[in-house]
């Protein structure tokens, strides 16, 4: 890779996640490769079934379905995570890599206070006493912009609003100062005014701790807001990736173009009809041969019967046979 002048924090190569089913092996994530540099915010965009969440679970070593088959390589600071024993992996998780989810309720237990849960996490990864761990929980909640952290620390998850719960979960994820935070649709369930607060928090995290963030979302608006680099996924594959300004200014893949055009504009002239992409994303069980986007693509031609590799165009990589003709070498 040309950008590997300094070693990336995370390097994923040829990652495949498949599931054994009665119809044979279904490949949900298909030969996925990407890197995350230190201090970088990488946005992973895709619709339902694109494999974006599965990728993040694979990195965390959290796929425990007995029918799942995982191949490829996931290197964190040069260390291979695939095949690492559970205990070793557990040290990396939490200490080094942390994750936040769309629904904080699913990541917390309803029967303990948020303070107890954060303190438990702190104690599991450090030598602090219970009292110190609790004090750390109060500090963290305060840092997350929670009003009256000393009181909120003794509340149960159900007593908090969605935004406050999301803050508590971020506090828990950050309790061990992870170098890499994976955020899976952390603002999707939130209202826009609260989403704005959480996005600001994520940026602050990168600024203050220098953490890298993999931000998974389906919302191109959020991507435009927060990302340094963008990776667009479709049907388990990367169809396009590149620095944010390039990708938004000159999207190369017809799917990226379609995705951007489908969003109604917030200012300027309203289109009579929105330029929608026909059809729906394919499920892993019936993905088309050749280019996965082929059946929905307006530019489809004969060479699309073969799945295109990623072509380089400027600073972007685009998996479309249309690109080589127009590529700037």
């Amino acid at each position: 890779m040309p950008e590997a002048a300094d070693e990336p924090l995370l390097r994923v190569e040829d990652l495949c996640v498949s599931f054994r089913s009665e119809r044979g092996l279904l490949r949900a994530v298909d030969r996925l490769s990407f890197t995350v540099a230190p201090g970088e915010i990488l946005a992973v965009v895709g619709e339902s079934g694109s494999g974006k969440s599965l990728t993040s679970l694979a990195v965390m070593g959290l796929i425990d379905d007995p029918n799942a088959v995982l191949t490829g390589s996931i290197r964190y600071r040069g260390r291979e995570l695939v095949g690492l024993p559970r205990r070793e992996l557990r040290k990396v998780r939490g200490d080094e890599i942390a994750m936040i989810f769309q629904d904080p309720m699913s990541a917390m237990t309803p029967v303990y206070t948020i303070g107890w849960q954060i303190a438990e996490q702190v104690q599991a990864h450090s030598r602090l006493t219970r009292r110190q761990a609790r004090a750390r929980a109060v500090d963290l909640l305060g840092e997350m912009g929670m009003p009256n952290p000393a009181i909120q620390v003794d509340r149960y998850p159900h007593q908090l609003s969605g935004g406050m719960r999301q803050r508590a979960m971020i506090a828990m994820a950050l309790s061990c100062n992870p170098s890499l935070l994976i955020a899976d649709e952390p603002t999707t369930a939130l209202d826009v005014t609260v989403q704005a607060q959480i996005l600001r928090l994520v940026e602050q995290l990168r600024r203050d701790h220098g953490s890298s963030i993999v931000f998974i979302t389906h919302d191109m608006g959020v991507v435009a807001e927060i990302a340094d680099r963008v990776m667009v996924m479709y049907a388990g594959k990367v169809v396009e990736r590149g620095p944010k300004p390039d990708l938004f200014a000159t999207p190369g893949h017809p799917y990226t173009v379609g995705l951007l055009d489908s969003i109604p504009p917030m200012a300027g002239a309203k289109p009579r009809r929105l330029p929608a992409i026909p059809g729906a994303p394919p499920s892993p069980a019936d993905r088309p041969d050749g280019c996965p986007f082929g059946p929905r693509c307006a530019h489809r031609h004969d060479s699309c019967r073969v799945d295109p590799p990623l072509y380089r165009r400027g600073r972007q990589d685009v998996s479309c046979t249309l690109v080589p003709e127009g590529a700037d070498a």
Binding site: D191, A196, Q197, G268
Partner: peptide, 24 residues
């Protein structure tokens, strides 16, 4: 509310973001 909406389109001018304090 309008200022909190992230803008996806490259050409659109971004509104001055007003971040509201607290919750509803």
């Amino acid at each position: 509310l309008l200022s909190a909406v992230p803008v996806a389109h490259a050409g659109e001018a971004r509104r001055r973001r007003i971040v509201l304090k607290g919750d509803v």
